[in-house]
């Protein structure tokens, strides 16, 4: 019976059987199931991940001891700024108060956020660190936990640096902010709740740019026909109108 099978097949099947048996034994007997169990690997990865050290304690933990600063911070302009954004990771400090978190004192630190940069969103308070009270520490005028302008700013550019910057190179450079915006005094103290006015109608620009205007140095248009039903600032950016 066995002799009818060619010799080659018999020999190869022995080899095959040995290989299969070795693999099967290795797989099912020798190797611990945990080495092959993907679920086990995943669980232990999650465990390891969860056990990692925390560096940043989180603002609510800070508030538990530093109620005064936290209270101030919560209502001021820095309300969105978490304690550890400036003071650095403070988890170690929560466990051993003798380990002090950092306290940035140099101007460079505030400038990370408040230095003027054209890529920053309009309206974000920015200064030019070279021109803005050089060599003075920021904290002498601004309390970092509740930053407000130390005195009512004289110039609009103190806060609206981006617009001011753009305006200096525009044909409107010599037109003062208050020529177009009337600014309530309170705007300088609570800038977001009391806003300056903005021009409402085409006629406002027409004072200089309408054909009939007496102003010599402004480009003239025919107000009733120019631009149809659109407002002037739909196409022209008033702080920096394109040169013609």
């Amino acid at each position: 019976m066995l002799n009818k099978i060619p010799e080659q097949i018999r020999r190869l099947s022995v080899v095959l059987a040995v290989v299969i048996a070795a693999v099967a034994i290795a797989r099912y007997v020798v190797l611990p199931s945990s080495l092959i169990d993907t679920r086990f690997h995943r669980e232990s990865t999650v465990q390891r991940e969860v056990a990692k050290n925390i560096q940043f304690a989180g603002a609510s933990v800070c508030a538990a001891c530093h109620a005064e600063q936290a209270g101030k911070n919560r209502v001021g302009y820095h309300k969105t700024v978490s304690c550890e954004a400036c003071h650095g990771p403070a988890r170690a400090h929560t466990e051993d108060p003798s380990i002090k978190p950092t306290k940035p004192k140099t101007r460079e630190f505030c400038v990370f956020c408040h230095g003027y940069d054209a890529s920053r969103p309009t309206g974000f308070p920015q200064i030019n660190p070279v021109l803005h009270n050089p060599l003075k520490s920021c904290a002498t005028c601004h309390n970092p936990h509740d930053p407000v302008p130390p005195e009512v700013p004289r110039e609009c550019s103190a806060c609206h640096a981006q617009i001011a910057n753009i305006k200096t190179v525009s044909p409107h450079a010599l037109i003062g902010c208050t020529s177009c915006h009337s600014v309530p005094a309170k705007h300088k103290v609570t800038p977001r709740s009391v806003r300056p006015t903005k021009p409402q109608a085409r006629d406002f620009c027409g004072q200089c740019h309408a054909k009939e205007s007496e102003r010599k140095d402004a480009p003239k248009i025919d107000l009733p026909t120019h631009g149809g039903r659109f407002l002037c600032w739909d196409c022209h950016y008033p702080h920096r109108p394109e040169r013609i």
């Binding site: 060619p6 010799e7 080659q8 020999r11 190869l12 022995v14 080899v15």
Partner: peptide, 10 residues
Amino acid sequence: LFSRDISERA
């Protein structure tokens, strides 16, 4: 694999 059969059939 210690095979021996080299007959024509093999």
